[in-house]
Design a protein around this nucleic acid. Structure first.
Lengths: 138, 138
DNA sequence: GAGCTTTGGTATCCAACGTAAAGTAGGCAC
DNA sequence: GTGCCTACTTTACGTTGGATACCAAAGCTC
């Protein structure tokens, strides 16, 4: 009989079961998302924030995707969604403690992007020139 | 190797121009990708690797996406693609130095995922129960 | 010499996803 | 009553990702 693990400790060396592997892959997919990272960053910097303010702050995100991203983050226990029963409606989103730790974990990634954006752009230009000039498989 | 420095220094606090902002967003979008992270991880652990081996090692990735991901990484100067003119063809992918640094930057993210997968799963169960029970907004 | 195999891809079809724009709710100023 | 405000939800549509099929080119088999 397969019991879902109920112990409190997680071996950091290797994921053992395929179920754990699948779940890990799923969580990774959720976390390695552009909008997720941007929402986390915005909420980290701005503290609690309303929907529209968050949308404006991030910029370029559709309501649908922002709603979806926030719901997923709420479901995963990374942000809290607090509704004030007022008119007009007011909903405030805020990072949980766990969400805060995730944002910290992505900090290195942000720094990498900031530090390497220039080099990546140069690499792209070089690649595009080379592809356009020499191989000629068109 | 000389890097072109037009403004002399890059402030790590804020991106200034909208163009830089857009590029940064673009690079982030490229980097915050499930397959990208998995490819980087696989190449980091396994060293240089052939296409099919990489596909098997990652698991669940289609040829199309693996090809696309590898092309993007190559274009961005993060992996090298070396073709041996043999039959059957042999293509070996390998991390560049910059790709290696990116993988290091994502290390914290991997650790977070491994450490928090369990808690996320629990949060999801709690959320789904609560949503199904009727205290929510349905 | 026809046909199968192996490897690293393209090409095609189709479902899922993301975006933009319009619609919904519900008090409140007019 | 009409319109406005906010936080969504729904609809329409274009783009992307996945599964499958196909391709090329040499070697081996028959």
């Amino acid at each position: 009989m397969d019991t879902i693990e109920q112990n409190g400790e997680i071996p950091l060396t290797e994921p053992i079961t395929p179920a754990q592997e699948a779940l890990l892959r799923d969580v990774l997919d959720r976390v390695a998302d552009k909008w997720t990272l941007l929402v986390l960053e915005a909420l980290e910097e701005g503290g609690g924030m309303r929907f529209t303010r968050l949308r404006d702050r991030i910029g370029g995100v559709s309501q649908k995707m922002l709603t979806k991203t926030l719901r997923q983050l709420e479901r995963d226990g990374l942000v809290t969604r607090r509704v004030y029963p007022e008119v007009p409606p007011r909903v405030e989103y805020r990072l949980t403690e766990r969400g805060h730790t995730l944002n910290e974990a992505t900090c290195a990634l942000w720094l990498w992007v900031e530090a390497n954006t220039d080099a990546v752009q140069q690499a792209r230009r070089a690649y595009d020139q080379k592809a356009g000039a020499g191989s000629g498989h068109e």
